[in-house]
Nucleic acid binder design. Structure first.
Lengths: 215, 215, 215, 215
DNA sequence: TATGAATGAGTCTTCATTCAT
DNA sequence: AATGAATGAAGACTCATTCAT
């Protein structure tokens, strides 16, 4: 959002770098405060303090608290959705392995509270700002679901996965991860996320082999 | 302002019953407002209006806004957890059927936005009131998880279910439902919840038969 | 603006009367503060203090500072314009006497700083709120001018006044009074307003007899 | 940021001249903003923008917003008062003609909104800064009144004007012009100022010939 | 001289909560 | 039990002014 001139010749003086970095520092601080207290309860003053600047300075970069929220979410959106699509596309040849890798990756990342901070925030404000929920659904969750469905479909097409309802599989894939992340970071429960490998193996054991005893 | 009939004889006058019902009406109104706007953004005045009383009257029943929130969550807790335990215990003999029934029931109920209103609210405030999140985790989610784990264990014990990680199965069971409910009611997406039977069959197809093509 | 129930039977308790009188007390205080410091520089807190209530209480009666300004001006408009029209109409038979009476009356009232407080305020905010200036012009000044023009026309019609430009006469009538009021109350100059009779006689001497020596 | 040509030789580079003109440009911009929005509501940033410089640069020339206001008023004072005195003195021989000329001149100039911008501004701030009102009264209005009174007295002395109250005549002279200017530029009414000649003739017709029909 | 960046102090407005009736 | 009126405390946002460069 902030135009950052490509560093051309001599190293830009340090104070310049500070000024350029401000918007991101503020967003980072805002995310932390919003996550910790919720959008409404978070005070601009605290965000400013966390970013190491004065309250008024935030307004040099963002016109309002709501704009801060929007910028925050937008800033986190592009990478996420794109990543999912890239990974899903890359794994089309061997979908089961790809899913396993994706699950491991996702699990590892979900161990970091920051990763679910935005989804959690979106849940919190969805009632008050439905457009933001819409935006998030369309640009993040729907895209991720779509990418995974394509992966499943590719698997079905090349015979690596039996003929299943793709949407159901995607839910069965995302749901438990999401649930575990909420359990851990929102509800404060003891987590299984600390051992991604084991978590995923257990999950895939169920997913791949089903529950019924085989003959 | 409301005319109050002089209390005549035996049958408790209707307005008495109203008064008795007040706390619940207030809680209902509070849940609606909290869900719609979040705890902080919800105004006591609006809650009062929704409950058909004056702002000051809320304080006759609840000492503060936070108390309202706590009472609200507590009121919804007991039934939920107990129900899960009852159902799980009842199904020990035939766990797979029991799971299928539970899933169908849960799905049907999750079609009603009110049902996830509380979990959603808890997510929203968890940062600000961790004790409430704790309370909810301990008294609702953990109990439900425990009940389901017992059911799975019973299934393993009587050979109806193969030897799996019970915790993983429970996540695989709850996660997708929870995720779909969030997708539908929080993010405003098109839902699969409207056809519980089909949703569950798809889900169980994956869960019971796995993903790999069988010989 | 505030509905005031006609006092029916027993004398309403004093506290009730207070509550009913609030809006007017606030308007009075607001006029004083606005006049003393200007609209922007006047603080709601000071207005509240002058009205003997808390800052927040103002908002029980007026939704915003601007609304206060509007209500204030509106409240002063109706009487003024109407009065001018009534008086002008009543004097049609003997226009010169009527003018003299009007001038005396106006002069006497203009000795009270409150009387020009609103016009002065309007001048101060006209740049920022042109609609208010429009409103004032249309509903007060234009009406007063119109009423006076009719009076002059009546005088011309019945031969008491010679054939002059009515608009010019009205300007010649209002202008000096307005100017003197500004000189006195805005610029803080020594005033001639303290002796209305003399002031008017001087003014009318010029107006009626002209400047040139008569033969 | 603006490229600054190395100061070469003799002719003062153009940018130097700009710098010299700065204070006046700023005052001009300030007058415009103050008039449009009032002293309090006018923002230093907007004044700077209108003057084509940065907000901080204003402080190179004026120590504060109030200083800007004072400088502004002072800058407009000297010419005005002096002009009135010069003109009045010049016309002593034929006061009626002189008055007519002065009126025509004043009317023509009052058609320009800028001309009454300062009086209007003074009215707006008089409550908050009485010293400024005092200053303006003493150095502008009182002087103009005095000059005109001298003119009238001269007229009386040489028999061109009958024995009238000089102060009243001056009010009768200034008042209508002032009033019409306010009506036009402050209240936004349709104006008679566009035809100075006619306006003055009408006004003088009343002033010189009175209202009563002559025998 | 000139300015982008930064901020302290201040103001409007909101709202949970209290209280007199 | 019920409420209209009142308010203290708090927070978003603004802006004149300063300062480092």
């Amino acid at each position: 959002m902030a135009t950052r001139p490509a560093p051309t010749g001599a190293p830009p003086p340090r104070w310049r770098r500070r000024a350029q970095a401000r918007p991101e520092e503020i967003l980072e601080a805002a995310l932390a405060e919003f996550t910790a207290k919720g959008f409404e309860a978070a005070r601009m003053e605290d965000i400013a303090a966390a970013a190491g600047i004065s309250k008024a300075s935030i307004y040099l970069y963002f016109p309002s608290k709501l704009a801060l929220l929007e910028a925050l979410i937008e800033a986190k959106v592009a990478p996420l959705a794109q990543q999912a699509q890239t990974l899903a596309a890359a794994g089309a040849a061997d979908p089961l392995t790809a899913l396993r890798m994706l699950a491991t990756l996702a699990t590892a990342r979900m161990a970091d509270p920051k990763v679910i901070a935005v989804p959690r925030l979106v849940i919190g404000i969805s009632g008050r700002f439905p457009e933001i929920a819409d935006y998030y659904r369309t640009n993040v969750v729907a895209k991720a679901r779509g990418a995974l469905e394509q992966l499943i479909e590719a698997g079905i097409a090349n015979g690596k996965i039996r003929r299943v309802d793709t949407s159901a599989v995607v839910r069965a894939f995302i749901g438990p991860l999401f649930f575990e992340a909420m359990w851990t970071h929102v509800l404060g429960g003891e987590t299984a996320l600390t051992d991604p490998q084991k978590l995923i193996e257990q999950q895939f054991d169920v997913l791949l082999n089903g529950l019924e005893p085989r003959a």
